[in-house]
């Protein structure tokens, strides 16, 4: 660029398998309201990842209806809400999504059973969609979901069925413990990969640098909500860069934390972020709901490596310590010990 400014790029790759308890499971309940709208209850805690929205989309897709008619229960009661192992490890969509699909299928089966009686048809000839159960070959033979979801009442008062409650659960197949000696084992079902890159501009006088551009390409399996997916990855990239560029606790010799407040523990702020480019490839995960793969945490993983690679190249010295404060780079360059 000029005598003291160097632009450089660095690339990092990642793979991640969400290792959870082998018996970590997730449950879901689907129930109906009198107007035919649905209630979805899962143990996933909504912490901003949008998983509850995704689960509503998954349910709507399977029930062939608009997500607008799905009421997502946000509150979790540990008394009665189905258990979700933990809202961690990028497992929300995967575990709870599969549980929701199972609950949806359970509800659909019950709806078709009642409709089969009412419509005098074999349930295998019936389909659910757009708020009705109808004969596949003759959609004019149909009954509204709202008329059967609390049972069906014949004109003379005879009634059949009853409230439909769909239940579902999911547990990952054939997981086992990792051998602490050899590392052998199956900690999780799918390995997810991605590549990330960072472009920086280094000032070789004081080793301060700007984050210009950051790119992430993740294998999403199937993107279920494009805006949410992009937001998840960008947020993770931001956190990865923040970790790499500034976040750490500093300790005294006795272990007291010197920077115990956000005054001195700095995180990236508005306008310090680079331009973000987020792209996805989609190679479906056959076990995942609609082929989706884990997404939430993955955007963070290779950012520090990509940043360190870019700075190492620009500074001409191998950088393998985080965070990459300008002073850290300067010390590495000077061959000085790090504090």
């Amino acid at each position: 660029m000029d005598a003291h400014t160097i632009r450089a790029k660095g690339i990092g790759c990642f793979w991640k398998n969400s290792s959870i308890d082998p018996d970590g499971s997730s449950g879901a309940i689907v129930s109906f309201n009198q107007d035919g709208s649905l209630n979805l209850e899962t143990g996933v805690v909504e912490i901003g990842t949008g998983t509850k929205t995704i689960l509503a989309q998954i349910l709507a897709e399977r029930m062939r209806m608009s997500p607008d008619h799905i009421h997502v229960k946000f509150k979790i009661s540990t008394d009665i809400t189905p258990e979700h192992w933990k809202t961690v490890a990028s497992r929300g969509t995967f575990l709870a999504g599969r549980a929701v699909l199972k609950a949806a299928d359970d509800a659909i089966r019950q709806l078709l059973d009642i409709a089969a009686c009412v419509l005098r048809a074999d349930p295998v000839d019936l389909e659910l969609g757009h708020g009705y159960v109808y004969a596949r070959a003759d959609p004019s033979v149909r009954i509204a979901v709202k008329d059967i979801c609390y049972g069906y009442k014949y004109p003379n008062g005879n009634s059949i069925g009853g409230q439909i409650i769909g239940r579902g659960h999911y547990i990952q197949r054939r997981m086992n413990y990792t051998n602490p000696e050899t590392g052998e084992g199956t900690p999780g079902p799918e390995w997810n990969v991605g590549a990330q890159a960072v472009e920086i501009e280094l000032d070789t006088r004081d080793y301060s640098y700007k984050l210009l551009k950051a790119i992430s390409v993740n294998d999403a399996g199937k993107v279920l909500n494009p805006k949410a997916a992009k937001g998840q990855v960008m947020g993770a990239m931001s956190m990865g860069l923040s970790f790499a560029n500034r976040e750490t606790f500093m300790f005294s010799g006795e272990g007291a934390i010197y920077n115990a407040s956000l005054r001195d523990y700095n995180v990236i702020r508005y306008g310090e972020n680079p331009e973000y480019v987020v792209e996805f490839i989609e190679s479906p995960c056959l076990d995942g709901p609609y082929g989706a793969r884990a997404l939430g945490e993955h955007g963070l993983i290779a950012m520090p490596a990509a940043l360190a690679a870019a700075l190492s190249r620009a500074a001409g010295v191998q950088l393998n310590r985080l965070p990459l404060f300008p002073e850290t780079i300067w010390r590495a360059k000077m061959g000085e010990p790090q504090p």
Binding site: M234, V267, R269, Y270, G271, N273
Partner: peptide, 20 residues
């Protein structure tokens, strides 16, 4: 000016681009 004002707030989840 926008940057000056908005650097008064911290967001931990987004990458700030959506806020921008």
């Amino acid at each position: 000016t926008v940057k000056d004002w908005l650097q008064s707030n911290i967001c931990r989840c987004t990458g700030y681009e959506e806020i921008r």
